[in-house]
Simulated scan of single mutants.
Amino acid sequence: MINTRQKLITYLRKRDGVKPSLQATLVNIRCKLPDVVIFGGMVRDFGLGVRHFSSDIDMVTTAPAEEIRRALAGLNPIMNKFGGFRFSENGRLFDIWSLHDTWAIREGHAQANSLTDLCKTTFFNLDAIIFDVRALKVCTLRGYDDDLLRRVLDINLQANPNPRQMAIRAVRMAIQKDLQLAPALVDYVLGQLYGSSLNLTFESYVRQLHDHTTRSADSPFRFEPQLKIW
């Protein structure tokens, strides 16, 4: 995780023209809220080797929702559909949750005593990673580094509010980020998507996925996009 940590720190401190660094926004939030971490996608993608991250930044704090609302008052936050707060700063979108308002914990699928327990709450194994904004430290579950090195996407916690959309997300992530699907996730995706209406690329992916299970069901699957024309 040393490389992931250093890549993140370098990126956070980078200035974009006249805009202040992303770190300045995080320092402002850190001063108002305790124990803030960046969660999931951004940290994962730097571990996978991306050089720039343009999606929303997901954050979690131990502070309760009302304290978050007060801390972000000057940033005009709005409640997002997942129970967190969304705001924009310097052209970047942020979503921030109270730890106990995150979906898996709120619904009783996982228990949390600290922010490191967030790693138990993600559907995907590669999303089970946090970056502590104050300590500048990366935390993961055991075995994460090996999965990241092999670029294997697997199920971490199966419970989720939208199984079909999660299966679609698995295919999208695998294609866009050149990931293999572990056998358990292969079965999950097929159960949700096989035989359903999909775009041509996704249809090709699922068809190859099905063929893979008849030949080597116990090994990870990697998509061969050149085969999609067949």
Rank of each mutant, 00 (worst) to 15 (best):
N199Q: 08
V60L: 05
R69S: 09
W103K: 04
R30E: 14
R5N: 10
H52G: 12
D178H: 07
F221Q: 00
L190R: 04
Y205P: 01
I175C: 05
R172C: 07
D58M: 04
L48F: 07
P64A: 02
I168M: 14
D45Y: 01
K14Y: 14
P34Q: 11
M79V: 14
L153M: 08
Q6D: 14
I130W: 03
R134N: 12
L148D: 00
G41D: 03
N76E: 14
A128L: 06
A128M: 07
E203L: 11
L12C: 11
C119F: 06
A112Q: 06
F123K: 03
M173V: 02
P183Q: 04
F124A: 01
D117R: 06
G91R: 06
E89H: 15
D218R: 06
D56L: 09
S197P: 05
D45T: 03
S114Y: 02
H210F: 08
R13S: 15
M59F: 10
S55H: 12
L198C: 10
L193T: 03
Q111R: 12
R142I: 06
I78Q: 13
K177W: 03
R215G: 05
S114E: 12
A73S: 15
E89L: 08
R169D: 05
L115I: 07
P64Y: 00
I78L: 13
Y11F: 15
K14F: 14
L198Q: 07
A63F: 01
F124T: 01
D16Y: 15
L136Q: 14
